[in-house]
Design a protein around this nucleic acid. Structure first.
Lengths: 231, 231, 231, 231
DNA sequence: CATGAATGAGATTTCATTCAT
DNA sequence: AATGAATGAAATCTCATTCAT
């Protein structure tokens, strides 16, 4: 997202005269860009060290920007964390939107959702850590966020439709609470990946090899589909 | 004045030898008790604020003991955290030992394990946070722990036996990896409880009412048993 | 929205020479107005928080103008404070000028001066705080001001004439140093108003009610006139 | 006060055994001493630079103690300022207590009070600056002080008695409000000394020479006594 | 065994000021 | 004339840890 912003951010107006330059746009983009850079740097730092362990100095360094600028744009560490969190949610919601589950058959849609969740967590490990941090602080940052409700996943509604359709078709069992199902679909990969280190240490077995990962994905699909499919 | 203070400092008990002191045993008991008090205080603090957010000052205050004593017994914050973590694992393993799953019928044993896990997490919320903290730090504290292996749950072995027995009896399906199943049984309540705040904030729905908790437990049992039972 | 504002902003008047521009005068007026706005904002800020506590950011905000502009017109915070101080002095001197004490009978002139001082301080509480700040900094800003001497109150000279006339008439006692008297006439309301909060807190009595203020004014008149009048 | 604490602060308990040492006293006294040192350093710093201009670093340096210790004992800058303020008030009240005005004849007592106030302000210039700072902050620090009322000068009561006695004797006029008089007696030297720099700069005349000071004291006595004496 | 006092390093945050248009 | 973005230096405050009995 932010990455893309950079692409068309030419600083070179060739031989345009200074007066003719679209000064304002340039500036606004700079401000936006700085904010984006800070946000990205902060996301990395918070993900790696948690809210308490993150260092504003390091965030500035990661961003290649003056520390003061962080406060200029984000007020303080807490607010910055909140901004990072909101963005992380917006990102995953956006990805979810692109799934188009309703075009698939119910069972297929569920499998696809399990796969998507697994892959998204794999590709965005920061999301897990951020979520952990947020929960350590009792979701205070979300509760303070006025956009909290917007972060409500549209998937719940979609899931409800899929389940209902499956039930009517006779392919899925009835009486499944979409929220419970959604939570379970998130829980299964989340725990595995988030606690990967502890689990690996205790069981003396690397859970992140390609093989282990494939096994986990199958297991989760089996579990979810085994539960929801009408036999 | 500081200078002079040294003069008569020697740990001088007159000519009594230290071993001959009548108080020794009592003292040892005090020592044990102090360590326990510190450990309990630290567990609370780490659970509430994470490793980064925990404060040695507050731990001392919670324990009602001098801060210096913590260092005396536990070297430093990291080591203290490690001690807390090991104890938390020992505690849950002890509880697991008392389950006697092998005495039950396979399906019954599984249901009981799901219920146990759910209830243990409910009763020991600090376990979840400690686990989170440990993983934020990539389980460094476990890897450094020489007792890590001892923490390996005996449940895996037990689960393997249960699954095998069920398969032979024909009551359970075959081909279920006990480790995957164990992880899933932990994952389902873990995510729900650990992310309770975030989920409640986002879905605008209190997930901790008695009703909601009962629903979650049924859902988890349905999910696990629906998957594992041979139909 | 911001973007659009700038579009026709460029300081480009085509090939008109700058001197020929019709807007010059208007601009000068704007410049004057901006300076005045800044000065007023700064006076408020310095009065409320002192030199050390005043914030350039807040001054800009109060003025509704860009912070950079303050530096453009006033060099730095110190110089701005000096400018504020000079203006405050000019203001009170101007007000004094309008008193026309010499037209009154000596005793009447003195009473009027006491009343004027009291009222001026009441109406311009910022004057007191500015004076305090100036003195905290050992009047450095005044010493650096080239106009310091101009700030010398013409009242001293006037007071000398009044006292002399009164002495000759026999209505006032002799041997009164006009500077001492002037200082006392300022001191009596100054302390009351400047320390109003402290005094109110300590004596648990609101000193700013209409009644309390009237009492103070009578007391001061009694004190000054009781001293200076020949009985 | 603190100064005296040092005097009997022996560090040498000779051949007392360790257990017999009044360890606690010793320690407490050290803590007291450190607090006293910090308080004295802070008083100087706040007096010189005001609350906003004071630097915690400099206070630590002045005290010859670790900056951290200031926070250990006084929480933060504001609280430290409050402590300094309270102490300054306690000091002047203590000095007032030693005046024994009631033993003198009314007129004599008043003259003595004027002299005392003048000399106290001369000897404790920090008191004036602290008072100024306190008032800049609208006496917030006093209002928050639970001891505010204890700082109420007993002089008011004493003054009331003196005035009443003088009135009955016939030596003093009646109808004088002791609070108004007290404020005026404070106001006259306060303004002169507190604004000394500004006044000197403006009038181009050093107000702190021995001669100038004597003149001021006479003037104040004349003013107060001229007002209060029955002729 | 136990402790109150003290500290250095480093964290977050602030603030006057300058840059670049 | 006017501005939003950016900064370096320094301020306040925090925190794990050690000192000295």
């Amino acid at each position: 997202m932010h990455e893309l912003d950079f692409i068309n951010h030419p600083v070179n107006y060739g031989d345009m005269t200074r007066d003719a330059m679209p000064v304002t746009e340039e500036r606004l983009r700079d401000a936006d860009r700085s904010q984006g850079t800070i946000l990205a740097a902060a996301r990395g730092e918070f993900a790696e060290f948690g809210l308490g362990g993150a260092r504003m100095d390091r965030i500035a360094e990661r961003a290649g920007l003056n520390k003061r600028l962080i406060y200029y744009y984000f007020t303080d560490k807490e607010a910055l964390f909140q901004a990072v969190l909101e963005q992380a949610y917006r990102d995953i919601r956006e990805a979810e939107q692109r799934l188009n589950l309703l075009e698939l058959k119910p069972a297929e849609a569920l499998r696809r959702l399990v796969e998507f969740t697994w892959n998204y967590y794999l590709d965005h490990p920061e999301f897990l850590t951020l979520l952990n941090s947020a929960n350590l602080h009792k979701a205070r940052h979300l509760q303070e966020s006025q956009r909290a409700r917007e972060l409500n996943s549209p998937l719940i509604e979609m899931l409800a439709q899929i389940l209902e359709r499956g039930r009517r078709e006779g392919s899925l069992r009835g009486g499944v609470d979409p929220l419970q199902l959604y939570i379970s679909i998130a829980a299964l990969p989340y725990f595995y990946l988030s606690n990967n280190h502890t689990l690996s240490a205790i069981f003396g077995r690397d859970l992140m090899t390609a093989k282990a990962r494939n096994e986990r994905l199958s297991h989760m699909c089996d579990l979810i589909l085994g539960y929801v499919l009408r036999d």
